[in-house]
């Protein structure tokens, strides 16, 4: 495989380097592929499936699929937008997301993605699952009601902080974030300087007493839709 090559995304030619994922290559070329579990600097995870594209007609996750020279990739099509809306709805009904009461509102990637994709009220029934909150730590809160199982905290702690503060427990819809202690977050090796505390796309893992520093209305996605920063780089 040549070191750099091109592929076609929605009719636009995109330059990629060998080993680069479809999502990263598109992003470098100013094309936004919607995503939730992906975060630059972390190993691609492929869990939320929001980034699903079609490469040569075959569906795949753009965050984990390496770009292929000369391939034809569909990204912003009605079919894929519909799947993405369904996936976002799934996350909303599975967890307990009350945006109007959530301090992450306006900075929340799930909420912002719902707006961008045009998801209003989910059509699917809510699960209303009982989920635990861990407020044991004096400066950190872990509210599993809002967790979307993206593993960004787990990966950041492991790969960037060199720790193992978080991990998954259980399976299926009982899958949940656990902490590296017998019971509580305050008994783990977590520090306030840990990057993992800033990895959460939603309001599940937060520093206490910081949520309202920026008033609602002035927050990241109050100002422009999610993905706008990437699209600004468009050549």
């Amino acid at each position: 495989m040549p070191d750099t090559f091109t592929f076609l995304m929605d009719g636009r030619s995109v330059v990629a380097t060998a080993g680069q994922s479809i999502l990263e290559a598109a992003e470098a070329g100013g094309i936004y592929v919607p995503r939730l579990c992906h975060k630059p600097g972390l190993v691609p995870w492929g869990a939320c499936r929001i980034c699903t594209v079609r490469m040569n007609d075959r569906p795949c996750a753009a965050c984990t699929q390496p770009a292929v020279p000369g391939s034809v990739v569909e990204n912003d099509t009605e079919e894929l937008r519909a799947y993405r809306r369904t996936l976002v709805e799934m996350l909303f009904v599975e967890g307990n997301h009350f945006c109007m009461l959530c301090e992450k509102s306006g900075n929340c990637e799930l909420q912002a993605l719902a707006y961008r994709l045009g998801v209003t009220a989910p059509r699917a029934p809510y699960f209303f699952q009982a989920r635990d909150i861990d407020a044991s730590h004096p400066d950190i809160i872990l509210d599993r009601n809002r967790c979307i199982q993206c593993a960004r905290c787990i990966r950041t702690s492991k790969d960037l902080d060199g720790k193992n503060v978080f991990g998954f427990l259980g399976r299926g819809t009982a899958k949940r974030i656990g902490v590296n202690a017998r019971v509580r977050l305050r008994d783990t090796e977590v520090d306030l300087t840990d990057l993992s505390l800033d990895a959460c796309p939603v309001g599940a893992l937060l520093r206490k007493r910081e949520g309202f520093r920026v008033p609602v209305g002035d927050r990241l996605y109050d100002l422009e839709p999610i993905g706008s920063d990437i699209e600004r780089n468009s050549p």
Binding site: G46, A47, C48, R49, I50, L87, M90, L91, V93, E94, A124, P125, F127, I148, Q149, F168, G170, R171, G172, T173, A174, K175
Partner: peptide, 21 residues
């Protein structure tokens, strides 16, 4: 399938539950 989904990815974890409902 709802019992056996590993829970890693959204469509399977949530979809198997929705189908039941």
């Amino acid at each position: 399938f709802a019992d056996e989904s590993c829970g890693y990815c959204t469509p399977c974890r949530v979809g198997t539950q929705l189908i039941l409902r």
